[in-house]
Design a protein around this nucleic acid. Structure first.
Length: 303
DNA sequence: GTTGAGCGTT
């Protein structure tokens, strides 16, 4: 194999640039990096398998996949892309494993028509997945529905799906949420370290609305809450339905409306219980009091 | 016999 030029591009569809090889036919990573700063390797689409394949890299030297480099277009690898992809793969595989053991919880169903029965609930929610419990709360004396109930699914992914949308049941829009009694458990079991579903979004600008943040972060997964402190404090909290999504974003710098925001773990910076509860918009303010009482009842609480 | 934000008699 002799000296030649190989075709390298940022992306499969980008216009390739010709990069010189060494006399022995290898290509130095440093040569690639001279044209594509930050490059850490090359990949290409195999004409046979139609899959992307990595180019062998030994101590800064890239080796041709076959007897020569051929006429293929080689695509540049960057550390950030790799990290991103690795995170997503880790998340995906972890989710597969986790989903099997991920405990489901009862969901409260708000806004039920007075006439809706448990059979109606069962019939409706069974279209999403296997239902293992339904309840309609009724007045003990009259038997009249109180207009809300509970539902529990076998699979956690069904629960996530059901929580992510509104439901038209017997002619009324209903919401399915985590009940307050379960809200702080965050689905974490005793042997499973709690991973926050909430991320801290730093360097926010004042023109970013909660809706815009929601629209933006939707691309990564179901967003269950967006909280922007008032008055403006240059940060926000975004909560995802899936903790794996939240975790995979931590450490990233993302561009929103042309400005770079920083994502990090939403760790409580202080133990002031009222500040803590202020991060749960839409929840009753009396939750703090309720929670304080529960601390007395259960001193060795997990929270 | 009514109603429409919320939080689970057993």
């Amino acid at each position: 194999m002799t000296e030649c030029y190989i075709r390298v591009a940022e992306d499969e569809n980008e216009e390739p640039m010709e990069i010189p090889s060494e006399e022995d036919g290898t290509v130095l990573l440093s040569t690639v990096a001279a044209q594509f700063p930050g490059a850490c390797g090359l990949r290409y689409r195999s004409p046979v398998s139609q899959c992307m394949r990595g180019v062998r890299l030994v101590e800064g030297v890239l080796h041709a996949p076959e007897s020569d480099w051929g006429n293929l277009v080689y695509v540049v690898n960057y550390p950030k892309d790799n990290k991103r992809k690795m995170d997503e793969m880790d998340a995906a595989s972890a989710v597969k494993i986790k989903r099997g053991v991920q405990k489901t919880s009862d969901l409260i169903v708000l806004g039920l028509p007075w006439k809706t029965t448990e059979q109606d609930l069962k019939d409706y929610f069974s279209t999403f997945g296997e239902v293992i419990m339904v309840q309609v709360k009724r007045d003990a004396k009259t038997g009249n529905s109180k207009g809300f109930g509970f539902v529990r699914f076998t699979d956690y992914e069904t629960q996530i799906k059901v929580m992510s949308q509104r439901h038209m049941i017997d002619g009324r829009w209903c919401d399915c949420k985590l009940p307050n009694s379960k809200y702080f458990l965050e689905q974490a079991g005793p042997d499973e370290p709690m991973r926050s579903r909430k991320v801290f979004v730093g360097r926010c600008t004042e023109d970013m609305t909660a809706d815009e943040l929601r629209q933006f972060f939707m691309q990564y997964g179901e967003v269950t809450d967006v909280f922007i402190p008032k008055p403006f404090r240059a940060f926000a909290f975004v909560t995802f339905a899936d903790d794996q999504v939240a975790q995979s974003l931590c450490g990233e710098d993302l561009i929103i409306k042309g400005t770079s925001v920083h994502i990090s773990n939403a760790e409580p910076k202080h133990n002031n219980i009222h500040h803590l509860f202020s991060n749960f918009p839409g929840r009753s303010p009396s939750l703090a009091a309720m929670f304080e009482r529960s601390q007395y009842q259960f001193p060795s609480s997990h929270v």
